[in-house]
Design a protein around this nucleic acid. Structure first.
Length: 269
DNA sequence: CAATCGTCCTGCGGGC
DNA sequence: TGCCCGCAGGACGATT
């Protein structure tokens, strides 16, 4: 599922491929968006950004596409010369198509359609993003800041809190489990029970597993691929969808916050 | 305030 | 062999 590292990877590649290109045609298969895209073209993309798990595509007319990939959202960028031979890759589960003046296309696809693709004015965009917590890879996210944030949540379970987008942005079920294993913390622990050493370790582990994810261009389990193929981070996972931890201990799997959660009863205290 | 549940959606794998 | 069931889960709103 696309979390911070997956979205970061896609955004970096979109920047390379679409900034400055003139869009001459847009099709979005969503009854809420369709009326809004009348008379939108032509326009150019002037920037692509990430906030939490959202992709923000900035248009040169002051409008924005705010995209959430849900669990199965993908982008394909196809050069004009390859449109025919690559049909099988970009046709299934098609939700949106941008056609550029050089004949290349950008498509958005999603098997389960649990995501969103909205055209917004700046005010709406800021409203939609206003409730998100801090970015874990920002320089402003310091250990001191993290400790201060945790004091507001002392009775909540640590795993559920890491996945709370209003608490901290961009962490989902994969990287929450990976960070907790790396930090040696049981996902069911209450925030208030973490001592100073554990808090520091968790802070460092969050940053480490997210950076690992970006370095490997995301985790390709189920549908996720980036614009140039599959990610590699699934090769480096420690507990997510695993039977044993790297130490060889049998993992436990329990539902937490309605999500499957694997953890090691030996390594994670 | 915390936690859970239902909702959206569809492919796939397990079980019989 | 084929079919049905349930699981996978990000975000959000309602409920406990």
């Amino acid at each position: 599922m696309p979390e911070l590292p997956e979205v970061e990877t896609i955004v970096a590649q979109l920047k390379q491929k679409i900034i400055g290109n003139k869009v001459i045609k847009v099709e979005v298969l969503d009854s809420l968006v369709e009326p809004k895209i009348k008379d939108l073209t032509p326009f150019r993309f002037i920037d692509v950004r990430r906030r939490a798990k959202y992709i923000i595509m900035c248009l040169d007319n002051g409008k924005y596409f705010l995209v959430h990939l849900g669990m199965t959202g993908l982008f394909y960028f196809v050069e004009k010369a390859q449109l025919e031979q690559k049909k099988k890759c970009y046709q299934p589960h098609l939700l949106a198509t941008f056609t550029f003046n050089d004949g290349s296309i950008l498509t958005h696809n999603s098997v389960r359609k649990i995501g969103s693709f909205r055209l917004m004015e700046e005010k709406e965009l800021n409203m939609a993003l206003s409730k998100l917590g801090p970015e874990p890879l920002d320089s402003e996210f310091t250990l001191g800041k993290f400790k201060e944030m945790l004091t507001q949540k002392s009775r909540a379970k640590v795993k559920v809190t890491l996945m709370d987008q209003s608490f901290i942005a961009g962490i989902g079920n994969i990287y929450a489990q990976e960070a907790l294993y790396h930090a040696g913390i049981n996902p069911e622990r209450k925030i208030g029970s973490l001592n100073s050493t554990e808090t520091k370790k968790l802070y460092e582990s969050i940053i480490l597993v997210l950076k690992e994810g970006i370095k490997h261009k995301g985790t390709s389990v189920d549908e996720y691929i980036h614009l140039e193929g599959a990610g590699e981070n699934q090769k480096y996972l420690r507990v997510y969808r695993k039977k044993k931890c790297p130490q060889g201990h049998l993992l436990k799997k329990e539902a937490m916050g309605g999500r499957g959660t694997s953890y090691c009863p030996v390594c994670q205290k």
